[in-house]
Design a protein around this nucleic acid. Structure first.
Lengths: 251, 251
DNA sequence: GATCTCACAATGTGATCAATAGGCCAATTT
DNA sequence: AAATTGGCCTATTGATCACATTGTGAGATC
């Protein structure tokens, strides 16, 4: 029995970091939230392959928690598994993109319609605040800020639906088109504005669930058209405008 | 002697098996498919907690692949994570159940409607065959067979939609209500038949996408009513009719 | 007799190890 | 000179290890 393996990790394990281990899943939580946010905000490019060890080194941990996080993201269809076992950010062709956005209309439209039934003055005020900050970032051409606030707007609205079933679905959808969406905003010809959000807010104030749904569907369609135009014009496959490594973990 | 826990599997670990390792992820694939099928078919009861080491011993592997599989199932909302870190099969209250089934109507209805647009004679023949076998198992009161063939009927239809986005969503939904559905069939007062499927097949042959969707929605509603009646009559929370351990891995 | 406490058994988490398969680059051959 | 093949390097995968925490049960105390 080789049970007498020398335990030579007292120096390398956590000698430099994390002296107090107060909460469970501390590392896992940190890695997962960073990866999720990174995918939604464009820290990783479509086609980029994720290395277990590289990411582990980046986060200052062992490959173990990263392994679990990547595995979970594969389940959420945010990453795809290569036959070799390595995982990478999927490249979406226009067909997959259309599929993705038609499901977005279906699911997020339903979430928005439900949310309209649970609307409160506080919700409207919060959404107004988010949207105002979003407009500011748009005027400053702040891509990361815009993406972040746009996501916050949508998810705040959907959260009001009160559905624990719809929310994970929507999160999975956003993780799937996130990396591609970031790239589309890099194209100067793609305009971004918050007009659809204004329309949604008006419908919310009116209390019209149907119009809220239509507003969300229209917003999704606008985003889809932008992504598809990028896809057709630029080929979508090879768009290494930026080395995403420069952006990694900078949010 | 606190280390007496791991002395029981030195023979089963890998000494007797797996001399040829041909494919990658051999163990992972096996564990995942067993767990998925087990959840859909009632091998695990709602509320049952899953032990990493127990399951690993059951599958004859180390806890490592099991850990990853359970983590993935948590991401798919098929299992829930306790604050202590252990995972278990969720207990669904009627509120969650209603939410789940309304989303089923939305998503599976859309998948069925799309599938109707891609209908082929082969698909109809396949569905007829599945349904005929399903009717046989129903007459024999074969719970496991009925569940399996019912699932095959639905997934074959949805697969014809050709959507790589809808399919994972539907699979996640089925994993969520799977354990509860199994229990409902244990109640003698709950009738099960395949009448809805007949209606769906007729609509498919007529080529009416709308009627196909309505047929699926009706079928889902029938299932929902059965589950909810069980939930209200029997409390749904404590229904340890069977020790699921007796069924484990028997499929 | 009930409750509180302490100790032990058990579980998940993170780290490390061993082995195998895949990718990459260079050298050699045609 | 180009293509193919060989070997080296690195990647993930599955197993084992160590530790911190949780949960449980027995025993003592009020």
């Amino acid at each position: 029995m080789p049970s007498t393996t020398n335990s030579t990790k007292e120096t390398t394990a956590n000698g430099a970091k994390a002296p107090p281990k107060k909460e469970r899943r501390q590392v896992h939580e940190r890695v997962f939230s960073h990866m999720r946010r990174g995918l939604m905000i464009g820290a990783f490019l479509p086609g980029q392959s994720m290395s277990l060890r590289k990411l582990a080194e980046r986060f200052g941990t062992s490959p173990m928690p990263v392994r679990e996080v990547l595995s979970r993201l594969v389940t959420a269809n945010a990453l795809e598994e290569m036959p070799s076992g390595s995982v990478r950010v999927p490249r979406l062709n226009s067909e997959k993109l259309e599929d993705l956005f038609s499901v977005r209309e279906l699911v997020e439209g339903a979430a928005a319609e439900r949310a309209a039934g649970n609307v409160t003055p506080e919700l409207i005020a919060t959404l107004h605040d988010i949207n105002n900050r979003l407009i500011e970032t748009i005027e400053k051409r702040d891509i990361l800020g815009s993406l972040s606030l746009n996501q916050e707007f949508h998810f705040t609205l959907y959260h009001a639906s009160g559905s624990d079933v719809l929310m994970p679905m929507i999160e999975s959808l956003w993780l799937q088109f996130g990396p591609t969406m970031y790239m589309s905003l890099l194209i100067p010809s793609v305009p971004w504005n918050a007009e659809d959000h204004e329309r949604i807010l008006t419908a919310l104030e009116k209390g019209s669930a149907t119009e809220v749904r239509k507003g969300i569907v229209h917003d999704i369609r606008t985003t889809r058209d932008a992504l598809l135009s990028v896809s057709s014009e630029h080929g979508l496959a090879e768009l290494p405008f930026v080395s995403s490594a420069e952006f990694s973990m900078n949010y």
